[in-house]
Structure formats: structure tokens, C-alpha cells
Amino acid sequence: MFIINLTYIVPLEELDQHMAEHVSYLDKYYEEGIFVASGRKVPRNGGIILALADSKDTIEQIIKEDPFYIHELAEFDITEFLTSKYHPHLKNLLS
């Protein structure tokens, strides 16, 4: 599993101009079963995406499709972790 940590590097007004595109991007990877959860940080200075993938390289390629990446609106940090405990409803996703 991966935590994708976004940190916004532009004013929110500029970011919001690309929000619809970003949501479409998120929807694509939810449909593919890669994204598990996502949302804004509080305060709104970035966001978090939880993702399932075979490798960090795969996640890096997926990030390159994000309008926030394409338009240089956010910095992206990827943390990989091995799930040792998780909610039972995630079992099907993780196996």
C-alpha cells in the first residue's frame, strides 16, 4: 500500500481551476481499484491518497497523469508500507 502525500505549491484559486480534472483523474483510478481513499488535509494545504499497486514505479507513473502534477500545482511524496493490520472490509482489496 502507498500513501501519496500532496503539498500544494500554488494559491488555492489556481488549484481550484483544475479541481474537476483532478477529480476525474481520481475517479479513473478508483474504478481501476488502485485508489482506496483520498481527501484534503486540514488545514487545506494538500491532500492524501491511499493506493494499492505492485510497485512504487507504478504509483510514480500514475501520479504523472494527475493534473496537479502536470500543471505543477503540488509536490508529491510517496510512502510505501506493508499492511500488517487492516479493517476486515479491506481484505478483498489487499489479497
Results as ranks from 00 to 15, higher is better:
residue 8 Y to M: 11
residue 35 F to Y: 05
residue 25 Y to R: 00
residue 1 M to D: 01
residue 80 E to H: 08
residue 58 T to D: 07
residue 95 S to V: 12
residue 23 V to R: 00
residue 50 L to R: 12
residue 13 E to C: 11
residue 75 E to V: 09
residue 26 L to S: 03
residue 2 F to C: 00
residue 89 H to T: 03
residue 65 E to P: 03
residue 50 L to A: 08
residue 50 L to H: 06
residue 92 N to A: 05
residue 89 H to M: 09
residue 71 H to M: 10
residue 79 T to Q: 05
residue 54 D to Q: 06
residue 38 S to H: 12
residue 69 Y to H: 12
residue 23 V to Y: 00
residue 9 I to E: 07
residue 74 A to Q: 03
residue 41 K to S: 13
residue 12 L to C: 03
residue 46 G to I: 04
residue 78 I to M: 13
residue 60 E to F: 12
residue 11 P to N: 02
residue 15 L to S: 14
residue 21 E to R: 09
residue 85 K to D: 06
residue 67 P to H: 05
residue 85 K to M: 11
residue 59 I to L: 10
residue 90 L to N: 07
residue 26 L to C: 06
residue 64 K to S: 14
residue 25 Y to W: 12
residue 86 Y to Q: 06
residue 41 K to N: 11
residue 29 Y to R: 04
residue 44 R to Q: 15
residue 36 V to D: 01
residue 84 S to V: 15
residue 19 M to R: 13
residue 39 G to C: 05
residue 6 L to A: 05
residue 58 T to V: 11
residue 75 E to S: 13
residue 76 F to T: 06
residue 6 L to P: 04
residue 23 V to K: 01
residue 62 I to C: 02
residue 21 E to T: 02
residue 66 D to P: 09
residue 91 K to Y: 05
residue 2 F to I: 01
residue 43 P to V: 13
residue 19 M to W: 11
residue 92 N to K: 13
residue 14 E to V: 14
residue 44 R to I: 13
